[in-house]
């Protein structure tokens, strides 16, 4: 089953950038509502890593929503007074909207981070610059290697009795010694890597960049749908405005704005649509067989 995240990284990256950008650059409560709902659903379906990130988001949401009415006293509809300061409905609604925007954007970015694994990032950079992508690839490898080596060295030092973590100073000294050994190891052995690169023709001329991902028709199609939905959303939402203070006046439900909402709605649940379609096809295929 080809899930949304198995599409070409360009498609996936473009999708999340569009969704994040539209969310971030609008203060339209309807759009933010859709965005928040869709991003949370997408996140639950894709990331599947427990309740912790949601709790963090909830706390952030509550704090951010509460801060605005406490420091901003504009607005006509006074709800109550706190220390002789008016708490207004307008400021409260603005606060909720702004908090929703931030949290929704955060969810989209989390999804983006999760989807853009190192090999996908490398693919994007490989298209941009083969040389930079090679350095990136090497650096990612070294990051892993250094982590493993750090452990080995500190174990070796311990077993030699050179690494004493009895008190803080000794522990820091021990760390510094491990770090020093690690740096020597990495730099000295790096030369072997460099020779291996030379031996295999690095620097003999222009490099190409081999890619596992292919940009197929369907990637193009999804990218196009994504672009079209974003365009419709941007055009449609251009007229939809909210004047917050002193009292809320909106032009949120013009026909052209409705079109914008539909556009953004399609954009925000695109992964769910694709995955559902694939799931149905699989069920159909397994029944047919």
């Amino acid at each position: 089953m080809r899930e949304f995240h198995e599409y070409n990284p360009i498609t996936v990256a473009a999708y999340y950038l569009c969704a994040t950008a539209v969310t971030m650059f609008t203060m339209n409560p309807v759009v933010i509502g859709i965005s928040l709902f869709a991003s949370v659903i997408n996140y639950i379906l894709y990331a599947k890593n427990g309740i912790k990130p949601h709790l963090f988001s909830l706390v952030l949401f509550v704090i951010m929503a509460a801060v605005n009415p406490l420091i901003n006293h504009n607005g006509m509809t006074v709800l109550f007074y706190l220390n002789d300061r008016p708490i207004t409905a307008e400021a409260a609604i603005y606060g909720v909207t702004a908090a929703g925007m931030t949290v929704a954007a955060l969810y989209w970015l989390r999804l983006f981070t999760k989807a853009m694994t190192s090999d996908k990032l490398l693919y994007l950079f490989g298209r941009l610059s083969p040389k930079i992508s090679l350095i990136l690839s090497m650096a990612i490898r070294y990051t892993e290697l250094l982590r493993i080596r750090w452990r080995k060295i500190s174990d070796a030092q311990k077993a030699l009795g050179l690494y004493d973590d009895g008190n803080l100073i000794d522990a820091l000294k021990g760390r510094a010694r491990v770090l020093s050994i690690l740096i020597t190891w990495a730099l000295e052995n790096g030369i072997i890597t460099a020779e291996s690169m030379d031996a295999r023709g690095y620097g003999t001329g222009r490099r190409t960049s081999f890619r596992l991902f292919r940009f197929r028709m369907r990637d193009g199609l999804i990218t196009a749908i994504c672009a079209a939905a974003t365009a419709i959303a941007v055009i449609g939402l251009n007229g939809a405005d909210v004047v917050w203070y002193p009292s809320i006046k909106t032009t949120l439900f013009e026909p052209v704005s409705i079109m914008g909402y539909v556009g953004f709605g399609v954009l925000s649940i695109l992964p769910i649509i694709i995955n559902t379609k694939e799931a149905i096809r699989w069920r159909y295929l397994s029944c047919a067989n």
Binding site: P130, K131, I135, Y142, G190, M197
Partner: peptide, 25 residues
């Protein structure tokens, strides 16, 4: 784009990658 055009030797390349990895850690 500027760096892409330059000719970076393999050794410098490895050293940059090692330093980058150290910074990441």
């Amino acid at each position: 784009a500027g760096i892409e055009k330059k000719n970076i030797g393999s050794r410098r390349m490895v050293l940059v990658a090692v330093m980058t990895a150290l910074a990441v850690i």
